[in-house]
């Protein structure tokens, strides 16, 4: 079963009496375990597409089904629940709480889940270790480099064990060396089974993905599978192809 299914999705904004169609009939499905890059110039609608994929926004028309659940007409609270259960976000400017430590930032998503909280600290520490910051748990964001902050943000995105990681220009605020580290980390996470969608205009970043969806003027203009820069495709994927 597909993890995300967009069926003829439209998104229309009305500014005064001007109607702007940002998305004009996008159909797309994302399978579990994929590493997809959504590319396009600014104004192409790729960010809106990501907002809808991440349940931050809903389609004006068409349908979006996430993990078998139709989220098109969900209430605000239900959308929050979907985000909390299925989605981990990574943002261009990290968006860590400035007054909280790395560990507290990683723990943030657990404040809003209904699940039991046992072992949350242990899991958060493990995730910090996974992103290479096991010794920085007590540091505030201001005491960390940009790359380290983004690693904390990745650990935060993983905290609730999401089905999909949505990264919006994850390397946009980083130098190229650090950007490489972050992309390698995302590739590694994907190799371990996490579905990753990266929104970017940077071909270098898109090069890590195995599928590239190009968006222009609110429609998908190209959808191609590529050989990942990071190595071979997993065996089971090759068998299915």
């Amino acid at each position: 079963m597909s993890l995300c299914v967009l069926e003829d999705v439209w998104k229309t904004y009305t500014l005064g009496d001007v109607r702007v169609d940002v998305l004009r009939g996008v159909s797309l499905s994302i399978e579990p375990g994929e590493f997809t890059a959504v590319m396009g110039p600014s104004g192409s609608g790729k960010t809106t597409l990501m907002n809808i994929l991440g349940c931050l926004d809903v389609p004006s028309d068409g349908r979006y089904i996430l993990a078998g659940k139709d989220v098109t007409h969900m209430s605000d609270d239900e959308l929050s629940r979907m985000r909390s259960e299925y989605i981990g976000f990574i943002f261009q400017s990290f968006h860590l709480l400035p007054y909280a430590t790395a560990l507290e930032n990683v723990l943030l998503p657990t404040l809003y889940v209904e699940r039991r909280l046992d072992g949350r600290r242990k899991r958060a520490m493990e995730l910090l270790a996974l992103v290479g910051l096991g010794d920085r748990a007590g540091f505030k964001p201001s005491q960390l480099s940009g790359g380290q902050q983004q690693r904390v943000a990745i650990a935060r995105a993983l905290m609730n064990a999401p089905r999909i990681i949505l990264a919006d220009e994850p390397t946009g605020a980083l130098d190229s060396g650090t950007a490489k580290d972050i992309m390698n980390l995302l590739t590694e996470l994907n190799r371990q089974g996490t579905t990753v969608v990266v929104v970017t205009h940077d071909p270098e970043v898109a090069g890590y993905a195995r599928r590239i969806v190009k968006v222009r003027d609110g429609v998908v203009v190209e959808d191609t599978e590529t050989a990942s820069k990071a190595g071979e495709r997993p065996v089971h994927d090759a068998l299915l192809a």
Binding site: L56, P109, Y112
Partner: peptide, 16 residues
Amino acid sequence: IPEIGVRRSVGARRGD
């Protein structure tokens, strides 16, 4: 506002 956005994105409801 960015903080609130992030909290919302990780699952906080309006009520939270």
